[in-house]
Design a protein around this nucleic acid. Sequence first.
DNA 1: GAGAACCTTGCACACGCTTGCAAGGCGGGC
DNA 2: GCCCGCCTTGCAAGCGTGTGCAAGGTTCTC
Lengths: 338, 338
Amino acid sequence: MAQGKIYVSALEVAERAGVSRSAVSRTFTPGASVSPETRSKVIAAAEALGYHVNQLARGLMRNESGIVCLIVSDMATPYRSSLVKALTQHLQNAGKIAMLINTDRSDGSVDLALRQAIRYRADASIILSGLPDKSIADLCLKSGQRLVLINRNDDQDGTLKINLDDREAAGRVVTAFVRAGCSRLAFANSDAKTPSLMAREEGFVDAARAHGLDVIVERHGGTTYESGKVLAQKLMTRDVRPDAVFCATDLLACGFLDAARHQFSLSVPEELCVAGFDDIQQASWSSYNLTTFAQPVEAIAQEAVSWLGDEMDADLRRSRSSRRLHADLVWRGSIRAG
Amino acid sequence: MAQGKIYVSALEVAERAGVSRSAVSRTFTPGASVSPETRSKVIAAAEALGYHVNQLARGLMRNESGIVCLIVSDMATPYRSSLVKALTQHLQNAGKIAMLINTDRSDGSVDLALRQAIRYRADASIILSGLPDKSIADLCLKSGQRLVLINRNDDQDGTLKINLDDREAAGRVVTAFVRAGCSRLAFANSDAKTPSLMAREEGFVDAARAHGLDVIVERHGGTTYESGKVLAQKLMTRDVRPDAVFCATDLLACGFLDAARHQFSLSVPEELCVAGFDDIQQASWSSYNLTTFAQPVEAIAQEAVSWLGDEMDADLRRSRSSRRLHADLVWRGSIRAG
DNA sequence: GAGAACCTTGCACACGCTTGCAAGGCGGGC
DNA sequence: GCCCGCCTTGCAAGCGTGTGCAAGGTTCTC
């Protein structure tokens, strides 16, 4: 009784329905050949007994578990959690299921996560943070597992890389700042030096230079609210205060705005223009009202999941292995109108 | 090549190591009897071939998949995502793995989710939102699956119910409001009528009554930032404005605060005291600086996961089937000091 | 009405693993 | 020297499913 009675198997259903076990199997296999009457007998019996196909066994046979691993750190962060949500939802719609692995801990934890994915014979892994060791990634691919990298630009063959047009987006912010009459530009970054963060930084600096403007770059900590505050301290205590700052992330921007307003009593956007990136929920809250770039979360999820569903041979897989999506600028109140 | 070579099996490892398949199996089974030399031969071979135990097959045999289903809606919400994160982490530490199921869609979706859990022979399901149909919950239990309900007070036997002391917490807010000299109390709630939300509301109303005070209760929409704003509209346009309002949730409180400050130009806590519940990240942001109750997220996760790990017979399971945790009051600046 | 084409169904094998069982090897106690 | 017990190891049965194959049944065509 401690080990409650086990699950009911297809055999029991077959016996009750007076058919063979294969008939049961076929009833629950889309596209298999079963007569309507057999099917209904089976379904009735299954219903009565509370039968549910054992996906473990099915996965074993089909060599396709239906599991997709989501490998992620900082998952309680607004942007990450919305991405995880979208991915989970899209996977469900596609008949797959999400397995969640947290990699906040040590550094080899992405590798550990991929090992776990292999053990569960996941059909694919989607990596939202960190980068896997080449050898383990190769093992995944060789085993027939698909790999999606979001916002990491590793050049691993056979994976789908989804990125945004970070550089171009950064350029558009410069334009907006210039139109607003700003000239003392700054970039507030975390020092995580993630590919996408660096792309924004470099894009910003380059575009500013094209306008003949220099940029003060400051980096600190992780991409958190607190880091945003610290960055504000650093930038706003300089001899010459910037009048426009692009924060690499909305979370940074929120911290930055709070510090700028409450500690330095600056009014935004009159004395200071600020832009962020991600368009997290909080960016639209009236205390922040932040002009920012929207992560196309739905499009990312859509793209990733549909790629997983695609039938494809090795060539096609390689040819479509990189997607670059567009980040829309969402105008709110933290930049003066041009 | 389209269907990349399959995974390497224990048999191949056995052949390479010159031992039997059982030896390989035992090497990767903690506590099994293998001599050190055999073990090291096996490990070497496994390493060389890139072998990883197939958890699907292992789960099939052991009747224990290692999978735990997290059934959740609104997972991009700050509180929910932090709970999901904590649970995922604790499960990993316990050697289990989290399967994530989103139930934002239709209403029977919790049942669908549990069906999915059954199909994957999950060892347990943790339900963070919604309530399962009795029959399907019974099926889970009968199949030997464990069920944890967080903040839902269904009275299903054999499940672990984790709740907070919502009523008592609400009472403590009343005390704080009274100490601050407030007398026109209001409660801002969503109209979701979730057990925990209603417990807070009733606890607040009752405690106020014990102090001889009436409470204006307003309910609207989901537990979102936007609902908080609407609730502020409703409460602040009354003939007699409340001077203290307890929001059922931090998200409501943030919306409420923003509307109160920016639309009604009220200063908090001078003219209006506000309290929330959950202690989400944003509550500590300086724009809000919200006095609130901390969801003991870690303790909840700890409690749930350790219960899952417990060996227990039916009696013990029933006797420990309900846990009530304490929510600490986190003092910040949205209530005047007494 | 006969033969072909098609649909349905059961059999049996395969998937990769765990584990009870028995046999073998080894050392220790008398 | 013998017997007992322990540790290790291989064998083989089984977990619950999918699916190729062949046999049987039905329908269609001419």
